[in-house]
């Protein structure tokens, strides 16, 4: 049986003629990455032994060998990240494998038009991520103190008998919770809207739970942006300004990047 091809990413062929292809160790940590030109697009691949890296054995490793998964996912991410610093890259998902050169070539050829428009979109731009966190406790106090309806209700509750107070306080807590969620969404959406001034495209992603982030604060916003390189600095300065102005109110901003443009390119 021949070797499999592990596909890391696709780059415009013209960029490979402008600079030499750097040396990288491949997925098996032995063989090197190399380019396969297919017309205007070049696939960046490495060879893998089809016996050792069959579909079943990879599935088995992904499901049962966390150390292997961590090491290989890190390798994939680092390789694509390094490539994206030197070339315009359409990054491929972890463990994208082709049976042989012919099947890869055929897939690339049939997606040529789509890839050309993606290269056009990505060229000269960077993907950045912004995660916004909020200390619910601090913001809840502000929401509660600055809302006249809540304050009036609180005074009204204090006049009630003890037992009744319990139920009314629960109702008020529920109201404050929903006001808090609305406030978090309103502020985050406003920031997302204002940042669009600097970006070509912006997408909202699902928030991560505290188990994933490992932070005490809740994530209130998670978005990705495609930004022209020249606008990255003003984009980050704007975020710093938010951080400075809103830190006291319990808000935290975590921009990160540049990342391989996973969210603004697709290839299947």
């Amino acid at each position: 049986m021949g070797d499999l091809l592990y596909l890391y990413g696709l780059i415009p062929t013209k960029e490979t003629t402008e600079q030499s292809f750097p040396s990288f160790k491949g997925f098996d940590n032995e063989r090197e990455l190399y380019p396969i030109p297919v017309g205007d697009t070049t696939a960046i691949v490495c060879n893998l032994d089809s016996g050792e890296y069959s579909e079943d054995s990879i599935k088995e490793k992904i499901n049962n060998d966390m150390q292997w998964l961590q090491e290989k996912a890190f390798h994939h991410h680092e390789t694509v990240l390094t490539l994206s610093k030197a070339f315009t890259v359409i990054p491929l998902k972890f463990c994208t494998l082709y049976k042989n050169k012919d099947s890869l070539t055929q897939t690339v050829q049939s997606n040529q038009a789509k890839m050309e428009s993606t290269f056009e979109l990505l060229e000269g731009n960077e993907e950045w991520n912004l995660k916004i966190y909020c200390d619910d406790k601090i913001l809840k106090e502000q929401v509660s103190e600055n809302n006249p309806a809540i304050e009036a209700k609180r005074i009204e509750i204090n006049e009630l008998p003890k037992g009744r107070q319990f139920f009314e306080k629960k109702k008020l807590d529920k109201l404050i919770e929903s006001e808090l969620e609305e406030e978090k969404n309103r502020v985050s959406e406003e920031i997302h809207f204002q940042l669009k001034e600097f970006v070509l495209q912006g997408n909202v992603k699902r928030n991560w739970s505290k188990d994933v982030t490992g932070k005490d604060e809740n994530m209130t916003w998670n978005s990705v942006y495609l930004i022209p390189k020249s606008d990255v600095e003003p984009f980050l300065e704007k975020i710093q300004q938010y951080e400075k102005e809103m830190k006291e109110m319990g808000w935290q901003f975590a921009p990160s990047g540049p990342w391989p443009a996973y969210h603004f390119s697709s290839f299947s």
């Binding site: 008998p161 003890k162 037992g163 009744r164 107070q165 319990f166 139920f167």
Partner: peptide
Amino acid sequence: SDEEIENLGEALM
């Protein structure tokens, strides 16, 4: 009734 609400509220509190 008001009395039942009062008693229940106090117990829960």
